[in-house]
Design a protein around this nucleic acid. Structure first.
Lengths: 206, 206
DNA sequence: GCACCTTTATGACAAATGTCATCAAAAGAC
DNA sequence: GTCTTTTGATGACATTTGTCATAAAGGTGC
């Protein structure tokens, strides 16, 4: 099983290497110290799993993962993190990394590598237990915050479904002109220009 | 410990009631069969935990939870679901319910109630294991699949950023008319109607 | 050379969109 | 009761958008 390690701390990466190679089946085929090298490293060595630190100077592990997975969706990436920074968990999940472990929990890294190599996803228990909190926090603002009424919010969701004004008017039992006025109002409040920007705003922030 | 049960299936709610009251510490203080009654029921009985089905005719458990938690963020709600519908998990997490369990797993309901009452959040193991998949922004198809060229995809990302045709033309060094033609082509290929639907499609499927 | 395709552009057009001023009925506030 | 706000509607208007027919270059293949 070919593993590549990317960590900007050489001490950590060599320590990892010795730990991993103590397991007879694992071969560390490459190491790098900068996320910017990750993509090239993946292409040249085609490791079974890429073991990467999240916090790195230069390109961080998330950006690097995103780049790799965009081009090679089948890539298996296992991210390592310290327990202090859990802000990346959700983002990492969305990007589609196959695992997310605490560095401290070094005894579980080897089994995790085997599991990931078998197609499973591995998220440490401490990580999983943080997910509910993180997801909840991520509701950046509720629509009530900046003066959007309930009815207006309903209209926004319909725009974010791709309906045109006539269809929205039908669903909300309003006239098309009224829908246009409402929409104009909403765009004004949110400082947006048109319905497409509103849909984008909805998917990015609501 | 006061518990309220909301389930549109009376068989289920009475079964739940007997299971719960077998535990000496639990008292079922109220039941209802419609999510629309949930808010009123919560206000009048102030249960320690609200046990609610997700799938209900009329107002479903998510809407009801959302209403309650908007007004009473400290409310503790434990949702029940069948294993078939996992589409609500993320939404439930975002709303901020304190637990999410499988109905089938009835032996864990009582311990879960105690845990939730102590301020913990409880998500069944089967539920948690689904989270990575659900969160992962699944690239259902890469743009190459349905005849979208690289340049067209670039245009799509700009539409999905909320740019209008003139701005896109500037960014891509094309004339505005050409952008319109390209867009028209894309909409045709994807069987969409306008740029807003395209942005929606991008956020939901790409 | 010519035929063919791709890329880019134009002009014309109807439809949809966003803005605005205005109006009127319903609902609250006093 | 009156006064005010909210809610919904209308019409006019400029702009944007999407569609289509058409065409000028540019490259590819033969």
């Amino acid at each position: 099983m070919k593993i590549a390690i990317i960590d900007d701390d050489i001490l950590v990466s060599t320590a990892l290497k010795t730990i991993l190679e103590a397991d007879g089946l694992i071969h560390v085929c490459a190491t790098a110290t900068d996320g910017a090298d990750a993509l090239r490293l993946y292409e040249t060595h085609q490791p079974d799993v890429l073991l990467m630190d999240i916090r790195m100077k230069g390109t961080d592990g998330l950006d690097a993962s995103s780049q790799i997975l965009t081009r090679y969706p089948q890539a298996r990436i296992l991210l390592l993190t310290t327990f202090s920074d859990d802000g990346y968990i959700i983002q990492a999940l969305k990007i589609g990394v196959k695992g997310y472990l605490l560095k401290q929990d070094y005894t579980s890294i080897v089994p995790a590598l085997h599991a990931v190599c078998n197609g499973q996803t591995v998220f440490g228990r401490e990580i999983v237990s943080r997910i509910p909190d993180l997801l909840q926090k991520k509701k950046e603002f509720s629509y009530a915050d900046l003066g959007i009424t309930k009815k207006e919010y309903g209209l926004i969701t319909l725009v974010a479904d791709g309906l045109n004004n006539k269809e929205i008017a039908g669903k909300m039992h309003l006239s098309e002109g009224t829908v246009r006025n409402y929409l104009s109002n909403i765009l004004d409040k949110l400082e947006l220009r048109d319905r497409t920007q509103l849909a984008v705003f909805y998917y990015q922030h609501l």
